[in-house]
Design a protein around this nucleic acid. Structure first.
Lengths: 219, 219
DNA sequence: CAGGGTATTGAACAGCTGTCCAGTAGCCCT
DNA sequence: AGGGCTACTGGACAGCTGTTCAATACCCTG
């Protein structure tokens, strides 16, 4: 008689299980996007039943919103940590731009793009995306203002410059993610030109930006 | 005895019915996006059964791809028609940018954004989007090259400038569509700054761009 | 070592999706 | 006028979705 294989249960502390589910959901979203990810995908990825997912999250959209918030906040904190220590304004702006810029095979941008896409149908996701976009804008604006006050460069309208630089990089990222037809060198060049024009400096003044796509992440 | 209401059939020539279905699908997509649109929505919009939709289109994704191609080609043709007649290079670039730029409540940009979002899961949609993006790029590149040769302005790298301007406008459009938190005046200003910087002219040299959002479509 | 608390299961549910196809009804041609 | 071609219907289908819940198996406490 064939022995009946009993499913190995894997009981965890609620806190840990929640974290594991978020991690699993992140992995699924990285592949299928926020549209396209399903409860069953996440459950399978976490080696768990679909019922358990709803035991820890009121609804699946809630889980997705939390995945995005966690991911985006982590990215923002990494960026903050890597730039807040730099006191030289020009150097700081250089690094800030270089870290925000789209990079070939950067999964982070796929998540963002996917989040904006799903946002119209998922209010919580949209709220998170808007909040973190604002936070990032503040980071840029602050760096531009500080650099201008310190006389490192000239920026007449930090708010406008932020809007233009982020829009440019968002647009480049969209192309990079959606078509994969963008060369890393082109992207680096485009961003250097734009940030130079906005600050009255030369592209050569932004060495970190120039390095985009030519090596490992500078963070 | 209540008389049994017989559904009024509305027999049409195949050509006409196809056009009507495309039109109905366009209306549905304009509201629900490419993800989110369903066969039943389209059938209802066209006052027709779902079976008929499949009688005219091999699959629903095929129909959606055709909707996008038709819409985007129409937009491109309108843009082409409005600018090809302008012989003065600066004036032509001005109008070209003003027509491409995102506008408050412009349904065209929602369709584009929605198409890019759905592209990863819908190869035909993606192919169309890439093709038409290339065609629009060519239009800009050509205008920049012509203007430079005629001495109307200076543009060292028409291909790069096109990439930067379109990326900027794509990024602005994304924000406009996804968050609706962008002022028309800001958008106009941002684009004028960028196109001026790219051509070595002043923002005031682009009056049509300045008019973005302040009046009816200049086309 | 017994018992309660709870993390976990997995089947069942209603509702949606695109697709199919046998049957029906209207127009055109002879 | 009548027969055939075909535009068209609408129900049925399999497969997916998020969500629910009674039953279960494990751990910790007493």
């Amino acid at each position: 008689m064939a022995s009946h294989a009993v499913p190995v249960r894997d009981r965890r502390a609620p806190e840990e299980r929640r974290a594991l589910l978020l991690e699993a959901a992140g992995a699924v979203v990285a592949v299928h996007g926020f549209d396209g990810a399903t409860v069953r995908d996440v459950a399978k990825q976490a080696n768990v039943s679909t019922g358990l997912v709803h035991h820890y999250f009121d609804s699946f959209p809630d889980l997705l919103a939390e995945v995005f918030a966690k991911e985006a906040e982590g990215e923002r904190d990494r960026l903050s940590a890597a730039t807040s220590a730099i006191s030289e304004p020009l150097e700081r702006l250089d690094k800030l731009v270089a870290l925000y810029a789209p990079r070939a095979d950067d999964p982070g941008w796929f998540i963002w793009f996917s989040a904006w896409s799903a946002a119209p149908r998922q209010p919580k996701l949209r709220a998170s995306a808007e909040r973190i976009h604002r936070e990032w804008s503040s980071e840029f604006e602050e760096a531009l203002r500080a650099g201008t006050e310190a006389g490192a460069f000239r920026c007449a309208d930090p708010r406008g410059t932020t809007r233009r630089l982020l829009s440019l990089m968002d647009g480049l990222a969209t192309q990079a993610v959606a078509t994969r037809s963008l060369q890393a060198a082109e992207v680096a060049h485009d961003i250097a030109i734009a940030v130079a024009a906005e600050t009255g400096l030369a592209p050569e003044d932004f060495p970190e930006v120039a390095r985009i796509g030519t090596g490992p992440l500078p963070g």
